[in-house]
Nucleic acid binder design. Structure first.
Lengths: 207, 207
DNA sequence: GGGGACTCTAAGCGCTCGCTCACCTTCGGC
DNA sequence: GCCGAAGGTGAGCGAGCGCTTAGAGTCCCC
């Protein structure tokens, strides 16, 4: 049960808010199809077929194919933001919070690679308005990470030359996991999370 | 340095080997179109139009639209490999060679973002045979970076826990530049290259 | 048990896609 | 000055696209 299980791993919880059931099945089918082939190469017939429905059924629940991508992007970014926000606001030193943020964010990208891939790489397929809405969420994600780094500098824990650039690099490390991570590869999401957390701490001058 | 210059920056040199002139113009037009809209969202009419030709002219020089992507991917990966190989084989300490590799590789991704975007993110749009050929080049790129890191460990310069994971992280940092870099943004390619080189040296435990 | 809301389907519309084909130029060699 | 190759065009083919529509099945409330 590769696909269903992978999607179930940490993602169905996020799709739980999507109702009714048929709409959720279509959305999950769309995530899988977009992740595999890309938004433009995916046909509405393919999405409906994966959900076990006729092509027309899609349009009962969604106005257009783009609305599916929009919904997926928004829910995915909200989940990403929640992950980072949780890590940023917990108790602990800046180093602990940064390591927590990176490892959980990386775990999300690795374990939910299907969703993460769509969320991170299909943004440009959205129309201008939808893209701007999603970009605002993305800036909030950046801000959470930057906040932790600034805290660490203020407390003297971190030694950082360029806050904005280092923040971008941290995000790069996390997001790029969605590009290369392979479920059948040698790593478990936990391992990549721990490894990248260690590397990020080195980047900010801890140890 | 708009599109023409950006393309000229480090890329037309690479396209110089493409002849005749019309074939090169089509190829450059395809790079721009693929980078802007993605492979599947780009039409052959758009490519031909950008090159100032009729839609049919494309098929005099290329058998299919996919052949264009294949050619772009191969030439781009060969250029990337050449950049990394040059840095890996120069004189100097492992730290100097790693910093050189990262900064020049990042400069290529930032300055030639148009090409790099196609090369790094449109791989899955190729057919199985072509993809496998390109993946072989990509593995060679990884190997060059891993080689430098292993040299640094052997010489005692670097302190690295996981060679394979650290190599992947270094590549992530470089490649992801193609996703976020904006020509009109606050950074010059040189600056990003220097910043990321510094961060990578921290990751391998130098300083 | 009849009516309305909701869900889904079969069929297909209009359009654009990748690609082809018949034909037209341009030009160097003799 | 004629000829064949090379490089180009306008028109258009078959296919598949996103999406619509007319109508059938199902369920719940009265």
């Amino acid at each position: 049960m590769s696909t269903a299980e992978e999607t179930a791993g940490g993602e169905t919880s996020a799709w739980g808010e999507v109702t009714p059931d048929a709409a959720r099945r279509l959305l999950i089918a769309a995530v899988e199809a977009f992740a595999e082939r890309g938004y433009h190469a995916t046909t509405t017939r393919d999405i409906a077929g994966r959900a076990g429905m006729s092509p027309a059924a899609l349009y009962i629940h969604y106005k257009t194919k783009e609305e599916l991508l929009h919904r997926i992007s928004r829910i995915g970014h909200e989940k990403a933001l929640e992950i980072l926000r949780t890590a940023a606001r917990r108790e602990g030193t800046a180093a602990e919070r940064l390591a927590d943020a990176v490892s959980s964010f990386v775990r999300w990208h690795a374990g939910g690679r299907t969703t993460a891939r769509v969320v991170q790489y299909e943004l440009d397929s959205l129309g201008p308005d939808a893209r701007e809405e999603i970009l605002a969420l993305r800036r909030q994600c950046d801000a959470e990470v930057r906040g932790i780094i600034e805290d660490g500098i203020a407390s003297g824990e971190f030694d950082v030359l360029d806050v904005k650039g280092t923040t971008l690099a941290v995000m790069s490390l996390c997001i790029d996991v969605a590009r290369w991570f392979n479920v059948d590869g040698p790593w478990a999401p936990d391992e990549v999370g721990a490894l990248d957390a260690d590397l990020v701490l080195r980047m900010v001058g801890v140890k």
